[in-house]
């Protein structure tokens, strides 16, 4: 596949096309991902999440600058929501990173969620592989930022940054169970406004109450003001210090293997879904079944078990 070659040589147009192939679920998607796979595994993947307005894009903009100062190639995947009504989207995160638009060492790609939940899009994992194979040193995933359910980014990233801003104390309480538990680095942005220190101690308190972590995984808390560019360099250094620790302690490998496990499971589930779709002609039959179950004519488990039996009998499963 010519596209694979061009991607691994870092050709911009090819990288962009490759991501579209994955995003549009084109016929060549599997071939592309498998073709790129041997070239992946080198990039460091960082996920950044947090509410809208917490300043994620501005932070990413600063991280890009530091990476470029160190002569590293960096790619950003910025996810924004698709409209559930029209399917359209306005992708505007890159507006805050546009000063890097013409830097050949920086690649920014906006993605619409296209109905996928969890703060990312279905194609995010594939896009990461494209960038990885294309030789980017660092890949940042900026999630939509709609709230605490965005834990799926953990399936993709080596390090998770959660961006918070003062004045959302109550939200922290609400977040306890979700996103707060997966973050490796808590970032209190807009540290120039009142309440930043209080927010920091609230996070500390919450972490104290949380489950015991192994040493490498002690979450860090950093105060920054992305707007005034204060504390950002320290944040940047901490990110990579943590990644090194993860690597040394074996946590990184553990996470990556966990990720592969999930990926294999996902592929299996997707394939099985496809099989079911065609073998059972779900498109046409589902409506009929719904009616029957709704009218209590059939019972859900009993019905599905029978269908499965049939498939097995016919050697279709």
């Amino acid at each position: 596949m010519e596209l694979i070659k061009r991607i691994t040589r870092g050709n911009t147009r090819a990288i962009a096309r490759g991501i579209s192939v994955i995003e549009n679920n084109s016929d060549t998607k599997e071939e592309l991902i498998d073709g790129l796979y041997p070239f992946t595994g080198k990039a460091q993947i960082i996920g950044i999440t947090g509410s809208p307005g917490a300043g994620k894009s501005t932070i990413v903009d600063r991280i890009i600058q530091f990476e470029r100062n160190n002569n590293k190639k960096i790619a950003v995947i910025a996810v924004d929501p698709s409209s559930p009504f029209s399917g359209g989207a306005i992708l505007g995160d890159r507006l805050r990173m546009q000063t890097h638009a013409t830097d050949p060492g920086v690649f920014i790609r906006s993605m619409a969620s296209r109905g996928y939940l969890g703060g990312i899009s279905a194609a995010t994992s594939g896009a990461i592989k494209v960038f990885d194979a294309a030789g980017f040193d660092t890949i940042i995933i900026e999630t939509i930022g709609v709230g605490q359910t965005e834990v799926e980014v953990i399936e993709l990233a080596d390090l998770i940054i959660l961006t918070l801003v003062p004045g959302m104390g109550d939200e922290i309480q609400a977040m306890k169970a979700g996103i707060m538990e997966i973050a490796d680095l808590f970032l209190v942005n807009k540290s120039d406004i009142d309440g930043a220190d209080r927010l920091k101690s609230e996070i500390e308190y919450m972490l104290m109450l949380g489950p015991e972590n192994d040493k490498a995984h002690t979450p860090q808390i950093k105060l920054v003001s992305a707007k005034n560019n204060s504390g950002t360099e320290e944040l940047y250094n901490t990110m990579f210090k943590q990644l090194t620790l993860f690597k040394e302690s074996g946590l990184l490998d553990k996470r990556r293997k966990e990720r592969i496990k999930m990926e294999i499971e996902h592929i299996f589930i997707d394939k099985l879904k496809d099989i079911l779709n065609t073998r059972l002609n779900l498109k046409e039959n589902m409506g009929i079944w719904i009616e029957k179950v709704y009218n209590r004519e059939i019972r859900p488990y009993n019905f599905v078990n029978k269908k499965m039996e049939n498939l097995k009998k016919e050697n279709l499963l």
Binding site: A16, S83, F85, L91, Q98, A101
Partner: peptide
């Protein structure tokens, strides 16, 4: 967006170079 397209919005003061880089990426 309301018509169902995915729109990448770059904001003001863009050079032709940055617009083209954006379009390609």
């Amino acid at each position: 967006k309301d018509a169902g397209y995915e729109v990448i919005y770059t904001g003001i003061r863009q050079t032709p170079e940055s617009i083209v880089a954006t379009a390609i990426q």
